[in-house]
Amino acid sequence: MLDDRARMEAAKKEKVEQILAEFQLQEEDLKKVMRRMQKEMDRGLRLETHEEASVKMLPTYVRSTPEGSEVGDFLSLDLGGTNFRVMLVKVGEGEEGQWSVKTKHQMYSIPEDAMTGTAEMLFDYISECISDFLDKHQMKHKKLPLGFTFSFPVRHEDIDKGILLNWTKGFKASGAEGNNVVGLLRDAIKRRGDFEMDVVAMVNDTVATMISCYYEDHQCEVGMIVGTGCNACYMEEMQNVELVEGDEGRMCVNTEWGAFGDSGELDEFLLEYDRLVDESSANPGQQLYEKLIGGKYMGELVRLVLLRLVDENLLFHGEASEQLRTRGAFETRFVSQVESDTGDRKQIYNILSTLGLRPSTTDCDIVRRACESVSTRAAHMCSAGLAGVINRMRESRSEDVMRITVGVDGSVYKLHPSFKERFHASVRRLTPSCEITFIESEEGSGRGAALVSAVACKKACMLGQ
Protein backbone atom coordinates (compact mmCIF):
# COMPACT_ATOMS: atom_id res chain seq x y z
CA MET A 1 0.00 0.00 0.00
CA LEU A 2 2.80 2.35 1.01
CA ASP A 3 4.72 1.38 -2.10
CA ASP A 4 1.70 2.20 -4.26
CA ARG A 5 1.32 5.61 -2.65
CA ALA A 6 5.04 6.33 -3.00
CA ARG A 7 4.89 5.30 -6.66
CA MET A 8 1.89 7.59 -7.24
CA GLU A 9 3.68 10.52 -5.57
CA ALA A 10 6.79 9.86 -7.68
CA ALA A 11 4.69 9.69 -10.88
CA LYS A 12 2.92 12.93 -9.91
CA LYS A 13 6.24 14.72 -9.31
CA GLU A 14 7.54 13.46 -12.66
CA LYS A 15 4.51 14.92 -14.48
CA VAL A 16 5.03 18.20 -12.61
CA GLU A 17 8.67 18.29 -13.75
CA GLN A 18 7.56 17.74 -17.36
CA ILE A 19 5.30 20.80 -17.13
CA LEU A 20 7.96 22.92 -15.39
CA ALA A 21 10.63 21.88 -17.92
CA GLU A 22 9.22 24.58 -20.24
CA PHE A 23 10.93 27.17 -18.04
CA GLN A 24 14.40 25.70 -18.51
CA LEU A 25 16.67 27.65 -20.83
CA GLN A 26 19.70 25.94 -22.34
CA GLU A 27 22.99 27.83 -22.70
CA GLU A 28 22.41 28.02 -26.47
CA ASP A 29 19.03 29.70 -25.81
CA LEU A 30 20.70 32.29 -23.59
CA LYS A 31 23.39 32.97 -26.18
CA LYS A 32 20.64 33.51 -28.75
CA VAL A 33 18.88 36.01 -26.44
CA MET A 34 22.23 37.72 -25.77
CA ARG A 35 23.05 38.10 -29.48
CA ARG A 36 19.58 39.45 -30.25
CA MET A 37 19.86 41.91 -27.35
CA GLN A 38 23.22 43.14 -28.72
CA LYS A 39 21.70 43.59 -32.18
CA GLU A 40 18.83 45.66 -30.74
CA MET A 41 21.27 47.71 -28.63
CA ASP A 42 23.18 48.51 -31.79
CA ARG A 43 19.97 49.55 -33.56
CA GLY A 44 19.03 51.77 -30.61
CA LEU A 45 22.38 53.60 -30.71
CA ARG A 46 22.30 54.26 -34.46
CA LEU A 47 20.54 57.33 -35.76
CA GLU A 48 18.90 55.64 -38.75
CA THR A 49 17.42 52.71 -36.79
CA HIS A 50 16.82 54.31 -33.36
CA GLU A 51 13.13 55.04 -33.92
CA GLU A 52 12.12 51.44 -34.65
CA ALA A 53 14.55 49.76 -32.22
CA SER A 54 12.85 48.08 -29.26
CA VAL A 55 15.86 48.79 -26.99
CA LYS A 56 16.03 52.59 -27.04
CA MET A 57 19.59 53.12 -25.68
CA LEU A 58 18.80 56.61 -24.38
CA PRO A 59 21.76 58.97 -23.83
CA THR A 60 21.75 60.33 -20.25
CA TYR A 61 24.22 63.23 -20.66
CA VAL A 62 26.10 61.83 -17.67
CA ARG A 63 29.68 61.87 -18.93
CA SER A 64 31.74 62.26 -15.77
CA THR A 65 31.83 60.19 -12.66
CA PRO A 66 32.33 61.77 -9.20
CA GLU A 67 35.98 62.48 -8.43
CA GLY A 68 35.64 63.12 -4.73
CA SER A 69 36.00 66.88 -4.75
CA GLU A 70 32.36 68.01 -4.81
CA VAL A 71 31.10 69.21 -1.44
CA GLY A 72 27.86 70.69 -0.12
CA ASP A 73 24.25 69.87 0.76
CA PHE A 74 22.02 68.39 -1.93
CA LEU A 75 18.40 67.37 -1.99
CA SER A 76 17.52 64.20 -3.82
CA LEU A 77 14.13 62.90 -5.00
CA ASP A 78 13.46 59.34 -6.07
CA LEU A 79 10.32 58.46 -8.03
CA GLY A 80 10.16 55.03 -9.62
CA GLY A 81 7.29 53.13 -8.07
CA THR A 82 4.46 53.53 -5.58
CA ASN A 83 6.82 54.97 -2.98
CA PHE A 84 8.51 58.33 -3.35
CA ARG A 85 11.63 59.24 -1.38
CA VAL A 86 13.06 62.61 -0.39
CA MET A 87 16.67 62.59 0.80
CA LEU A 88 19.09 65.17 2.17
CA VAL A 89 22.64 64.29 1.15
CA LYS A 90 25.66 65.97 2.73
CA VAL A 91 28.76 65.56 0.58
CA GLY A 92 31.97 66.60 2.31
CA GLU A 93 35.52 65.85 3.38
CA GLY A 94 35.55 63.00 5.87
CA GLU A 95 38.29 61.93 8.25
CA GLU A 96 41.80 61.63 6.80
CA GLY A 97 40.76 63.63 3.76
CA GLN A 98 38.42 60.91 2.51
CA TRP A 99 35.21 61.81 0.79
CA SER A 100 32.10 61.36 2.92
CA VAL A 101 28.45 61.14 1.96
CA LYS A 102 25.86 61.36 4.74
CA THR A 103 22.13 60.96 4.17
CA LYS A 104 18.78 61.51 5.89
CA HIS A 105 15.64 60.43 4.11
CA GLN A 106 11.90 59.98 4.34
CA MET A 107 9.52 57.80 2.33
CA TYR A 108 6.10 58.98 1.16
CA SER A 109 3.59 56.70 -0.53
CA ILE A 110 1.94 57.99 -3.69
CA PRO A 111 -1.85 57.86 -3.61
CA GLU A 112 -3.60 56.08 -6.48
CA ASP A 113 -5.34 59.28 -7.65
CA ALA A 114 -1.97 61.05 -8.02
CA MET A 115 -0.55 58.12 -10.03
CA THR A 116 -3.50 57.94 -12.41
CA GLY A 117 -4.85 61.53 -12.35
CA THR A 118 -3.15 64.47 -14.05
CA ALA A 119 0.54 65.36 -14.20
CA GLU A 120 -0.28 68.53 -12.24
CA MET A 121 -1.81 66.48 -9.40
CA LEU A 122 1.21 64.15 -9.31
CA PHE A 123 3.84 66.90 -9.26
CA ASP A 124 1.84 69.03 -6.80
CA TYR A 125 1.85 66.03 -4.46
CA ILE A 126 5.62 65.61 -4.95
CA SER A 127 6.28 69.28 -4.13
CA GLU A 128 4.03 68.95 -1.06
CA CYS A 129 6.25 66.06 0.13
CA ILE A 130 9.41 68.15 -0.45
CA SER A 131 7.86 71.01 1.55
CA ASP A 132 7.02 68.64 4.41
CA PHE A 133 10.58 67.23 4.40
CA LEU A 134 12.19 70.71 4.42
CA ASP A 135 9.94 71.74 7.34
CA LYS A 136 11.00 68.69 9.35
CA HIS A 137 14.68 69.47 8.77
CA GLN A 138 14.28 73.27 9.12
CA MET A 139 15.78 73.90 5.69
CA LYS A 140 13.05 75.95 3.99
CA HIS A 141 15.32 79.01 3.98
CA LYS A 142 18.05 77.31 1.90
CA LYS A 143 17.98 77.08 -1.89
CA LEU A 144 19.49 73.63 -2.41
CA PRO A 145 20.64 71.97 -5.63
CA LEU A 146 18.27 69.08 -6.37
CA GLY A 147 18.92 65.77 -8.10
CA PHE A 148 15.88 63.87 -9.35
CA THR A 149 15.90 60.10 -9.87
CA PHE A 150 13.06 59.44 -12.30
CA SER A 151 12.82 55.80 -13.29
CA PHE A 152 10.77 55.91 -16.47
CA PRO A 153 11.82 56.07 -20.14
CA VAL A 154 13.03 59.62 -20.84
CA ARG A 155 14.67 61.15 -23.90
CA HIS A 156 17.26 63.55 -22.48
CA GLU A 157 18.13 66.79 -24.20
CA ASP A 158 20.53 67.69 -21.40
CA ILE A 159 21.33 66.57 -17.87
CA ASP A 160 18.44 68.70 -16.54
CA LYS A 161 16.00 68.33 -19.41
CA GLY A 162 14.23 65.13 -20.39
CA ILE A 163 11.01 64.28 -22.21
CA LEU A 164 8.90 61.45 -20.75
CA LEU A 165 8.39 58.91 -23.56
CA ASN A 166 5.84 56.73 -21.78
CA TRP A 167 4.77 55.77 -18.28
CA THR A 168 5.41 52.21 -17.03
CA LYS A 169 4.81 50.33 -13.74
CA GLY A 170 1.15 51.29 -13.37
CA PHE A 171 1.58 55.10 -13.65
CA LYS A 172 -0.86 56.84 -15.98
CA ALA A 173 -0.86 60.55 -14.98
CA SER A 174 -2.17 62.42 -18.03
CA GLY A 175 -0.35 65.39 -19.54
CA ALA A 176 3.15 64.14 -18.66
CA GLU A 177 4.06 62.01 -21.68
CA GLY A 178 5.82 64.13 -24.31
CA ASN A 179 6.68 66.82 -21.76
CA ASN A 180 9.86 67.88 -19.95
CA VAL A 181 9.71 66.20 -16.54
CA VAL A 182 12.05 68.71 -14.88
CA GLY A 183 9.80 71.50 -16.18
CA LEU A 184 6.75 69.83 -14.60
CA LEU A 185 8.60 69.64 -11.27
CA ARG A 186 9.82 73.26 -11.45
CA ASP A 187 6.27 74.45 -12.26
CA ALA A 188 4.84 72.58 -9.27
CA ILE A 189 7.49 74.07 -6.93
CA LYS A 190 6.66 77.53 -8.31
CA ARG A 191 2.92 76.97 -7.77
CA ARG A 192 3.53 76.20 -4.08
CA GLY A 193 5.78 79.20 -3.62
CA ASP A 194 6.91 78.31 -0.08
CA PHE A 195 10.45 77.12 -0.96
CA GLU A 196 13.01 77.45 -3.76
CA MET A 197 14.94 74.65 -5.44
CA ASP A 198 17.56 74.50 -8.14
CA VAL A 199 16.89 71.32 -10.16
CA VAL A 200 20.33 70.55 -11.60
CA ALA A 201 20.12 66.93 -12.75
CA MET A 202 17.64 64.21 -13.59
CA VAL A 203 18.78 60.60 -13.80
CA ASN A 204 17.32 57.13 -14.16
CA ASP A 205 17.57 54.75 -11.16
CA THR A 206 20.08 52.55 -13.02
CA VAL A 207 22.35 55.58 -13.55
CA ALA A 208 21.97 56.64 -9.92
CA THR A 209 22.88 53.10 -8.83
CA MET A 210 25.97 53.04 -11.05
CA ILE A 211 27.19 56.42 -9.78
CA SER A 212 26.50 55.49 -6.16
CA CYS A 213 28.50 52.26 -6.55
CA TYR A 214 31.30 54.07 -8.41
CA TYR A 215 31.85 55.90 -5.13
CA GLU A 216 32.73 52.48 -3.59
CA ASP A 217 34.57 51.03 -6.60
CA HIS A 218 35.98 53.07 -9.49
CA GLN A 219 35.64 50.14 -11.90
CA CYS A 220 31.84 50.38 -11.67
CA GLU A 221 30.65 51.24 -15.18
CA VAL A 222 27.35 49.34 -15.27
CA GLY A 223 24.22 49.96 -13.18
CA MET A 224 21.34 47.51 -13.01
CA ILE A 225 17.96 47.31 -11.28
CA VAL A 226 16.11 44.05 -10.70
CA GLY A 227 13.09 45.06 -8.65
CA THR A 228 9.51 45.86 -9.66
CA GLY A 229 10.94 46.28 -13.15
CA CYS A 230 14.30 45.50 -14.74
CA ASN A 231 16.72 47.80 -16.55
CA ALA A 232 20.43 48.57 -17.00
CA CYS A 233 22.80 51.38 -17.99
CA TYR A 234 26.52 51.41 -18.84
CA MET A 235 29.33 53.69 -20.03
CA GLU A 236 29.38 53.61 -23.85
CA GLU A 237 32.06 55.05 -26.16
CA MET A 238 30.83 58.47 -27.36
CA GLN A 239 31.68 57.60 -30.97
CA ASN A 240 28.94 54.92 -30.82
CA VAL A 241 26.27 57.25 -29.38
CA GLU A 242 24.99 58.68 -32.66
CA LEU A 243 22.13 60.60 -31.04
CA VAL A 244 24.61 62.99 -29.38
CA GLU A 245 27.31 64.98 -31.17
CA GLY A 246 30.95 64.41 -30.26
CA ASP A 247 33.28 61.41 -30.33
CA GLU A 248 35.48 61.96 -27.28
CA GLY A 249 35.23 59.96 -24.08
CA ARG A 250 32.22 58.02 -22.82
CA MET A 251 28.60 58.69 -21.92
CA CYS A 252 26.27 56.69 -19.74
CA VAL A 253 23.50 55.11 -21.82
CA ASN A 254 20.18 54.01 -20.28
CA THR A 255 19.36 50.88 -22.28
CA GLU A 256 15.63 50.66 -21.35
CA TRP A 257 16.09 46.96 -22.12
CA GLY A 258 12.76 46.07 -20.48
CA ALA A 259 11.16 46.72 -23.88
CA PHE A 260 13.33 44.09 -25.59
CA GLY A 261 11.00 41.59 -27.24
CA ASP A 262 8.39 44.17 -28.23
CA SER A 263 9.29 43.53 -31.90
CA GLY A 264 9.06 39.74 -31.61
CA GLU A 265 12.65 38.97 -30.52
CA LEU A 266 11.45 36.81 -27.62
CA ASP A 267 8.41 35.16 -29.21
CA GLU A 268 9.92 31.66 -29.32
CA PHE A 269 10.63 31.80 -25.58
CA LEU A 270 7.25 33.11 -24.39
CA LEU A 271 5.03 30.55 -22.67
CA GLU A 272 1.25 30.54 -22.29
CA TYR A 273 1.66 31.97 -18.76
CA ASP A 274 3.68 34.90 -20.16
CA ARG A 275 0.99 35.67 -22.71
CA LEU A 276 -1.69 35.67 -19.99
CA VAL A 277 0.36 38.00 -17.76
CA ASP A 278 0.96 40.32 -20.71
CA GLU A 279 -2.71 40.39 -21.78
CA SER A 280 -3.92 41.35 -18.30
CA SER A 281 -1.18 43.99 -17.74
CA ALA A 282 -1.55 47.78 -18.01
CA ASN A 283 0.62 47.76 -21.18
CA PRO A 284 -0.08 44.65 -23.34
CA GLY A 285 2.59 43.91 -25.93
CA GLN A 286 5.12 46.18 -24.22
CA GLN A 287 8.04 45.60 -21.81
CA LEU A 288 8.02 41.86 -22.61
CA TYR A 289 11.59 41.19 -21.40
CA GLU A 290 10.83 43.00 -18.13
CA LYS A 291 7.71 40.84 -17.69
CA LEU A 292 9.90 37.70 -17.67
CA ILE A 293 12.09 39.10 -14.88
CA GLY A 294 10.52 41.90 -12.82
CA GLY A 295 8.97 41.52 -9.39
CA LYS A 296 5.76 43.12 -10.62
CA TYR A 297 5.05 39.93 -12.58
CA MET A 298 6.91 37.03 -10.93
CA GLY A 299 4.26 36.12 -8.35
CA GLU A 300 1.50 36.23 -10.95
CA LEU A 301 3.47 33.88 -13.24
CA VAL A 302 3.78 31.40 -10.36
CA ARG A 303 0.04 31.67 -9.64
CA LEU A 304 -0.79 30.79 -13.26
CA VAL A 305 1.58 27.81 -13.14
CA LEU A 306 -0.09 26.58 -9.94
CA LEU A 307 -3.53 26.84 -11.58
CA ARG A 308 -2.28 24.76 -14.52
CA LEU A 309 -1.03 22.09 -12.09
CA VAL A 310 -4.41 22.14 -10.30
CA ASP A 311 -6.20 21.72 -13.64
CA GLU A 312 -3.96 18.73 -14.41
CA ASN A 313 -4.96 17.25 -11.04
CA LEU A 314 -1.36 17.38 -9.82
CA LEU A 315 -1.85 19.87 -6.97
CA PHE A 316 -4.31 20.44 -4.09
CA HIS A 317 -6.39 17.40 -5.16
CA GLY A 318 -7.34 19.28 -8.31
CA GLU A 319 -9.14 22.08 -6.44
CA ALA A 320 -8.03 25.71 -6.24
CA SER A 321 -9.32 28.14 -3.60
CA GLU A 322 -11.14 31.33 -4.54
CA GLN A 323 -8.05 33.32 -3.49
CA LEU A 324 -5.73 31.32 -5.74
CA ARG A 325 -8.05 32.04 -8.65
CA THR A 326 -7.76 35.80 -7.96
CA ARG A 327 -5.30 37.77 -10.09
CA GLY A 328 -2.37 39.11 -8.07
CA ALA A 329 -3.12 36.95 -5.01
CA PHE A 330 0.22 35.13 -5.12
CA GLU A 331 2.58 38.01 -4.36
CA THR A 332 6.19 38.08 -5.49
CA ARG A 333 7.37 38.21 -1.87
CA PHE A 334 5.73 34.78 -1.46
CA VAL A 335 8.12 33.43 -4.11
CA SER A 336 11.09 34.56 -2.00
CA GLN A 337 9.52 33.22 1.19
CA VAL A 338 8.69 29.82 -0.34
CA GLU A 339 12.26 29.44 -1.61
CA SER A 340 13.63 30.55 1.78
CA ASP A 341 11.84 27.67 3.52
CA THR A 342 14.37 25.67 5.54
CA GLY A 343 12.98 22.26 4.65
CA ASP A 344 10.31 21.81 7.34
CA ARG A 345 7.80 23.35 4.86
CA LYS A 346 6.25 25.49 7.64
CA GLN A 347 6.71 28.74 5.76
CA ILE A 348 5.22 27.27 2.57
CA TYR A 349 2.30 25.78 4.49
CA ASN A 350 1.56 29.13 6.17
CA ILE A 351 1.58 31.06 2.89
CA LEU A 352 -0.73 28.56 1.20
CA SER A 353 -3.03 28.59 4.26
CA THR A 354 -3.48 32.36 3.92
CA LEU A 355 -4.67 31.63 0.36
CA GLY A 356 -7.37 29.31 1.69
CA LEU A 357 -5.54 26.07 0.89
CA ARG A 358 -4.73 23.01 3.01
CA PRO A 359 -1.64 21.62 1.32
CA SER A 360 -0.08 18.19 1.76
CA THR A 361 3.69 17.78 2.10
CA THR A 362 3.88 16.92 -1.61
CA ASP A 363 1.83 20.03 -2.47
CA CYS A 364 4.35 22.17 -0.57
CA ASP A 365 7.24 20.58 -2.48
CA ILE A 366 5.51 21.12 -5.83
CA VAL A 367 4.78 24.80 -5.04
CA ARG A 368 8.46 25.26 -4.19
CA ARG A 369 9.49 23.72 -7.53
CA ALA A 370 7.08 26.04 -9.37
CA CYS A 371 8.62 29.07 -7.63
CA GLU A 372 12.16 27.86 -8.38
CA SER A 373 11.33 27.32 -12.05
CA VAL A 374 9.93 30.83 -12.55
CA SER A 375 12.63 32.65 -10.57
CA THR A 376 15.49 30.66 -12.13
CA ARG A 377 14.25 31.49 -15.63
CA ALA A 378 14.09 35.16 -14.56
CA ALA A 379 17.71 35.06 -13.33
CA HIS A 380 18.90 33.35 -16.52
CA MET A 381 16.98 35.68 -18.86
CA CYS A 382 18.40 38.66 -16.96
CA SER A 383 21.92 37.21 -17.24
CA ALA A 384 21.65 37.08 -21.05
CA GLY A 385 20.93 40.82 -21.14
CA LEU A 386 23.79 41.78 -18.86
CA ALA A 387 26.21 39.44 -20.65
CA GLY A 388 25.22 41.16 -23.90
CA VAL A 389 26.09 44.57 -22.43
CA ILE A 390 29.40 43.46 -20.90
CA ASN A 391 30.62 41.53 -23.96
CA ARG A 392 29.77 44.55 -26.09
CA MET A 393 31.82 46.84 -23.81
CA ARG A 394 34.82 44.48 -23.96
CA GLU A 395 34.69 44.28 -27.77
CA SER A 396 34.40 48.04 -28.26
CA ARG A 397 37.37 48.57 -25.91
CA SER A 398 39.40 45.80 -27.62
CA GLU A 399 40.41 44.32 -24.27
CA ASP A 400 41.49 40.67 -24.08
CA VAL A 401 40.27 40.38 -20.51
CA MET A 402 38.05 43.10 -19.11
CA ARG A 403 37.70 43.75 -15.40
CA ILE A 404 34.43 45.46 -14.57
CA THR A 405 32.16 46.13 -11.63
CA VAL A 406 28.36 46.09 -11.85
CA GLY A 407 26.33 48.04 -9.29
CA VAL A 408 22.95 46.44 -8.59
CA ASP A 409 19.82 47.46 -6.71
CA GLY A 410 16.24 46.23 -6.52
CA SER A 411 14.08 44.03 -4.31
CA VAL A 412 14.25 40.83 -6.41
CA TYR A 413 18.06 40.93 -6.50
CA LYS A 414 18.42 41.84 -2.83
CA LEU A 415 15.63 39.85 -1.17
CA HIS A 416 15.23 36.63 -3.15
CA PRO A 417 17.35 33.90 -1.48
CA SER A 418 18.91 32.43 -4.65
CA PHE A 419 18.36 34.90 -7.50
CA LYS A 420 21.76 36.56 -7.31
CA GLU A 421 23.75 33.30 -7.12
CA ARG A 422 21.95 31.84 -10.15
CA PHE A 423 22.25 35.15 -11.98
CA HIS A 424 25.98 35.65 -11.24
CA ALA A 425 26.87 32.08 -12.26
CA SER A 426 24.98 32.40 -15.55
CA VAL A 427 26.49 35.83 -16.40
CA ARG A 428 29.99 34.47 -15.79
CA ARG A 429 29.35 31.46 -18.05
CA LEU A 430 28.29 33.83 -20.84
CA THR A 431 31.24 36.25 -20.41
CA PRO A 432 34.34 34.00 -20.37
CA SER A 433 36.80 36.84 -21.08
CA CYS A 434 35.57 39.14 -18.32
CA GLU A 435 36.25 39.37 -14.60
CA ILE A 436 33.07 40.74 -13.06
CA THR A 437 32.53 42.07 -9.55
CA PHE A 438 28.96 42.68 -8.36
CA ILE A 439 28.25 45.21 -5.62
CA GLU A 440 24.93 46.08 -4.03
CA SER A 441 24.05 49.71 -3.90
CA GLU A 442 23.17 51.18 -0.51
CA GLU A 443 20.46 53.86 -0.83
CA GLY A 444 21.63 53.89 -4.43
CA SER A 445 19.00 55.96 -6.16
CA GLY A 446 19.03 58.90 -3.78
CA ARG A 447 22.74 59.05 -3.14
CA GLY A 448 23.55 58.56 -6.81
CA ALA A 449 21.24 61.39 -7.91
CA ALA A 450 22.89 63.70 -5.37
CA LEU A 451 26.37 62.74 -6.60
CA VAL A 452 25.33 63.40 -10.21
CA SER A 453 24.04 66.80 -9.01
CA ALA A 454 27.38 67.41 -7.29
CA VAL A 455 29.20 66.73 -10.57
CA ALA A 456 26.77 69.01 -12.45
CA CYS A 457 27.23 71.80 -9.88
CA LYS A 458 31.00 71.49 -10.01
CA LYS A 459 30.92 71.67 -13.81
CA ALA A 460 28.64 74.72 -13.72
CA CYS A 461 31.07 76.44 -11.32
CA MET A 462 34.03 75.58 -13.56
CA LEU A 463 32.18 76.97 -16.58
CA GLY A 464 31.40 80.09 -14.57
CA GLN A 465 27.63 79.64 -14.89
Score class of each variant (00 low, 15 high):
Ser383Glu: 02
Gly356Val: 02
Arg275Ala: 13
Phe438Gly: 01
Phe260Ala: 03
Thr326Val: 14
Leu301Phe: 05
Ser396Tyr: 14
Ile211Lys: 00
Val302Phe: 08
Cys434Val: 07
Thr326Gln: 14
Glu268Val: 03
Thr354Tyr: 09
Asp363Cys: 04
Ser109Ala: 09
His137Asp: 08
Glu372Arg: 01
Met238Val: 01
Asp160Ile: 14
Ile366Leu: 06
Arg397Gly: 08
Val71Glu: 03
Gly246Phe: 09
Gln323Phe: 08
Asp278Arg: 05
Phe260Ser: 03
Glu440Ala: 07
Glu399Asp: 09
Gly223His: 00
Pro153Leu: 13
Lys420Gly: 11
Thr118Val: 12
Leu134Ser: 04
Ile130Ala: 06
Val374Lys: 00
Val310His: 09
Lys90Ile: 06
Lys172Gly: 04
Ile351Cys: 04
Thr65Ser: 10
Leu451Trp: 11
Val33Thr: 03
Lys15Trp: 13
Phe84Ile: 10
Ser151Asp: 14
Leu309Asp: 00
Gln239Asn: 08
Val89Ala: 02
Gly328Gln: 15
Gln106Ala: 03
Ser433Ile: 06
Ala208Ser: 15
Tyr273Ile: 14
Gly223Ala: 11
Ser336Pro: 15
Asp135His: 02
Ala425Thr: 15
Leu79Ser: 07
Asp274Ile: 02
Glu372Cys: 05
Ile348Cys: 08
Gly388Asn: 09
Met238Ile: 12
His218Lys: 07
Ser441Gly: 05
Gly72His: 00
Leu2Ser: 11
Phe152Gly: 13
Arg186Gln: 09
Leu88Phe: 05
Leu357Thr: 04
Phe316Ala: 05
Asp160Cys: 10
Glu17Cys: 14
Asp198Thr: 01
Gly175Tyr: 04
Pro59Val: 03
Val55Thr: 03
Ile436Asp: 01
Phe316Ser: 13
Ile110Ser: 07
Lys169Met: 14
Gly246Tyr: 02
Leu75Gly: 01
Arg191Phe: 06
Ala456Thr: 04
Val389Thr: 03
Arg275Ser: 06
Ala449His: 09
Cys461Arg: 15
Val101Phe: 03
Gly264Glu: 04
Glu435Tyr: 13
Asp400Met: 02
Met462Gly: 12
Arg186Met: 09
Arg422Cys: 13
Val401Thr: 07
Ala454Gln: 14
Leu185Ala: 01
Val335His: 09
Gly94Ser: 12
Asp267His: 04
Leu122Val: 08
Arg308Val: 02
Arg325Gln: 12
Gly227Arg: 01
Leu134Pro: 00
Trp257His: 04
Leu184Lys: 05
Leu292Arg: 10
Asn283Gly: 11
Ser445Pro: 10
Arg186Ser: 08
Tyr273Asp: 08
Ala176Gly: 06
Ser127Pro: 08
Gly94Trp: 08
Met402Asp: 12
Arg85Val: 04
Phe419Asp: 01
Leu2Gln: 15
Lys459Trp: 06
Thr82Cys: 10
Arg403Ile: 11
Lys169Ala: 12
Gly388Leu: 10
Glu421Pro: 12
Val33Tyr: 01
Ile130Leu: 14
Thr168Met: 07
Val401Trp: 13
Val207Arg: 00
Val91Gly: 04
Thr49Ala: 05
Cys434Ser: 06
Glu9Lys: 15
Met393Gln: 11
Lys15Gln: 09
Ile348Met: 03
Leu315Gly: 06
Arg377Leu: 00
Ala387Asn: 02
Gln24His: 11
Lys136Ile: 09
Cys457Gly: 12
Lys90Ser: 02
Leu271His: 02
Val55Pro: 11
Ala387Trp: 01
Lys459Val: 12
Leu463Pro: 07
Glu17Gly: 11
Leu144Ser: 10
Ala11Leu: 15
Met37Val: 03
Pro284Leu: 11
Asn391Cys: 10
Tyr125Ile: 14
Asp365Cys: 02
Lys39His: 02
Ser411Phe: 07
Gly385Arg: 02
Ala10Ser: 13
Ala282Val: 13
Arg186Leu: 04
Glu256Phe: 14
Met87Leu: 07
Gly227His: 01
Leu315Asn: 02
Thr326Ala: 10
Lys140Pro: 02
Glu248Gly: 03
Phe171Gly: 10
Phe269Met: 03
Arg447Val: 13
Phe195Asn: 01
Lys143Pro: 00
Gly183Arg: 02
Gly183Trp: 02
Gln287Gly: 14
Ser418Ala: 06
His50Asp: 01
Val71Phe: 03
Leu301Met: 12
Ser131Gly: 08
Thr342Phe: 03
Thr255Ala: 12
Val154His: 11
Thr354Trp: 09
Gly170His: 15
Thr209Asp: 01
Tyr61Thr: 05
Ser151Thr: 09
Ala232His: 04
Ser281Lys: 13
Lys142Asn: 14
Val412Ser: 09
Asn391Glu: 05
Val200Ser: 03
Asp113Thr: 15
Met393Glu: 03
Arg85Ile: 10
Gly388Ile: 05
Gly227Asp: 07
Leu357Pro: 04
Asp160Tyr: 12
Val199Tyr: 02
Leu47Arg: 14
Gly81Val: 13
Ser212Asn: 07
Gly97Cys: 07
Glu331Ala: 14
Ala173Thr: 07
Ile366Asp: 03
Glu248Cys: 08
Lys459Phe: 13
Ala384Leu: 11
Glu221Leu: 08
Ala208Glu: 12
Arg303Leu: 04
Lys291Asn: 14
Gly44Ser: 05
Val367Gln: 00
Ile293Asp: 11
Val16Tyr: 10
His105Pro: 06
Val226Pro: 02
Arg85Asn: 08
Leu144Arg: 05
Gln347His: 05
Thr168Ile: 08
Thr103Tyr: 06
Cys457His: 15
Pro153Thr: 11
Thr361Arg: 03
Phe23Cys: 07
Arg303Tyr: 03
Cys434Arg: 05
Tyr413His: 07
Ile439Lys: 04
Ala378Met: 10
Ser76Trp: 04
His50Glu: 08
Leu315Lys: 00
Val427Trp: 04
Leu270Trp: 03
Thr361Tyr: 07
Ser212Leu: 04
Val338Arg: 00
Arg7Gly: 11
Val374Arg: 00
Phe74His: 03
Asn283Met: 15
Glu9Ala: 07
Gly68Asp: 07
Ala188His: 01
Gln98Pro: 02
Leu144Gly: 02
Val389Ile: 06
Gly444Val: 07
Ser453Tyr: 10
Arg429Ser: 15
Asp311Ile: 06
Glu245Gly: 01
Gln18Trp: 11
Gly170Ala: 08
Asp267Ile: 12
Tyr297Leu: 15
Phe195Met: 06
Thr431Trp: 04
Ala460Pro: 11
Leu79Glu: 03
Met34Trp: 04
Val277Gly: 05
Val241Gln: 02
Leu276Ile: 14
Phe438Leu: 05
Ser360Leu: 03
Lys140Leu: 10
Gly175Gln: 04
Val91Ala: 09
Thr209Met: 01
Ile293Gln: 15
Ser263Trp: 02
Asn83Arg: 08
Leu146Tyr: 08
Ile351Tyr: 01
Ser100Glu: 10
Asp73Gly: 01
Phe133His: 05
Arg392Thr: 10
Glu67Gly: 08
Lys190Gly: 13
Arg36Leu: 08
Gly343Leu: 02
Ala379Phe: 08
Val203Pro: 02
Gln138Ile: 07
Phe150Tyr: 10
Val302His: 01
Glu395Leu: 11
Leu25Gly: 08
Ala329Ile: 14
Phe269Tyr: 04
Gln38Asp: 01
Met121Phe: 13
Gln138Thr: 14
Arg275Asp: 13
Ser445Ala: 11
Asp78Lys: 06
Glu9Trp: 10
Leu304Asn: 14
Phe260Glu: 00
Met210Phe: 09
Val203Ala: 02
Pro111Glu: 07
Arg369Pro: 00
Arg7Phe: 14
Arg368His: 12
Asn180Trp: 15
Leu122Tyr: 14
Val181Arg: 04
Val199Trp: 09
Met34Phe: 02
Phe195His: 04
Gly92Gln: 05
Ile293Ser: 13
Thr168Ala: 09
Glu157Met: 15
Thr60Cys: 09
Phe133Gly: 02
Asp400Leu: 04
Ala384Asp: 00
Glu435His: 08
Leu77Gly: 04
Glu221Ile: 01
Tyr413Met: 07
Glu242Trp: 02
Arg63Cys: 00
Glu290Tyr: 14
Glu236Cys: 00
Met210Asp: 00
Leu30Glu: 09
Gln337Phe: 08
Cys252Lys: 00
His50Trp: 08
Thr65Met: 08
Ser383Thr: 13
Ala232Gly: 02
Trp167His: 12
Lys459Gln: 14
Leu357Arg: 06
Cys382Arg: 02
Phe150Glu: 15
His141Val: 04
Lys56Glu: 09
Glu442Phe: 11
Ser151Glu: 15
Asp4Asn: 07
